[in-house]
Design a protein around this nucleic acid. Sequence first.
DNA 1: ATCATAATTAAATAATCGTATAATTAATTA
DNA 2: TAATTAATTATACGATTATTTAATTATGAT
Lengths: 222, 222
Amino acid sequence: MPSHAKPARRKPGRPATADHTRAQHALVDAARRLFAEQGYSAVSMRQIAEGAGVNPAMIAYYFGGKPGLYEAVLEETLSPFLAKLRSLAEQSRGDIGDIRGVLEGYTRTLAGNPWIPQLLVREVLFESGRFRERFVRQFASRGGNLLSRLVQHEIDAGQLRRDLDPALTALSLIGMALFPFISYPVAREVFGLEMNDALVQRLIEHHIRLFLQGAAADKVRP
Amino acid sequence: MPSHAKPARRKPGRPATADHTRAQHALVDAARRLFAEQGYSAVSMRQIAEGAGVNPAMIAYYFGGKPGLYEAVLEETLSPFLAKLRSLAEQSRGDIGDIRGVLEGYTRTLAGNPWIPQLLVREVLFESGRFRERFVRQFASRGGNLLSRLVQHEIDAGQLRRDLDPALTALSLIGMALFPFISYPVAREVFGLEMNDALVQRLIEHHIRLFLQGAAADKVRP
DNA sequence: ATCATAATTAAATAATCGTATAATTAATTA
DNA sequence: TAATTAATTATACGATTATTTAATTATGAT
């Protein structure tokens, strides 16, 4: 007999074990994985339900529908991440170590949550108007981006070059840290990278060196 | 009478004007725009056909179906772009100007083809296995990435620091140039950027300075 | 002039989508 | 213990999807 035999599917009715959040969490987990892999509209509720091992109707029951489940995924996944980012950007001690700390914390957070880069980029950069507004409002809140203020602060303190463009520099910092993760499926093949602790450390050191010191050999500096 | 009145829709039959490629091109153009905006599976053939002003059946007629149209879009859009990238990476003259030239050419190419970054990232980084294989094969061809070889070459020539990681440096260069474009919808709001010639120039200068000289003020260099 | 073929639309088809409803069972409450 | 509510499945529904087929008209070849 084939080992693919479906596990004697459940009959209707409330389950004996009062596991009254299992289905919800299973759905959010499955949805997060599938949305990050394939995107919102490429994934069907039936797929998600199958991945979670429950009936599709549970999505309506718990989340009201596909959009509601999506909201729940974003809430559970990206909100803690954004909070982490803000706390990283806020702990400015006023020396060059701040940039170092932000870069390191940012990189480690991304590395520790593999689905975030995909979901974040897909969501914030592509699915216009879904989560983007909230992201912009939440991350760019209080009249300007914390990171570009941090850069400006370090320029004023004489730690960073005066001829830098603070906004573009902040953007470069974000891109530098984020890009290896969003490009990983390709970079892995093209550059032979394997994501592990060693690579994370290598990325952090590379980025700090490149960002602060630049790539030019000393003798060719003006 | 409402001004929305549909333009007296065509009756079946071969059109008088022997415009025997108009429909094909209109379909590819509409599909490229919609795919870049919303992604493959979020766009229906009806939408595309409407955008092109033809009947959905023309997609089957000319391209065999939705996947065929998609292939055609990728072919027409990304192939010339990849060819351009390769030619940029190949014209290595052996001095520091090469990196400059690559960065500038890359940036200007991206800026001149607004749909490429979205389509490229969506396609290559997300839609696993569709265009990615071809991209990796075509771009990472001949035993290694040309860009990281260019970096290595300049390290050997004493133009770049010896303590650089060539692969990560190449990745940083790509990310640095690409990220402002893929993040533009958000960066525009957060950093108040407007994409125009001035911003392109500002990006090029910023990236060259940051990449070569780094961000640290001279007095804090070791 | 006739006939095959190319280009186009309209309409039909089968599948799949998200959602709604009804049935079923266990837990909770009265 | 009886009644109600919570959690779950099965199934049905209408809309939309990609695709196919048939009809229609002009072009090009003979």
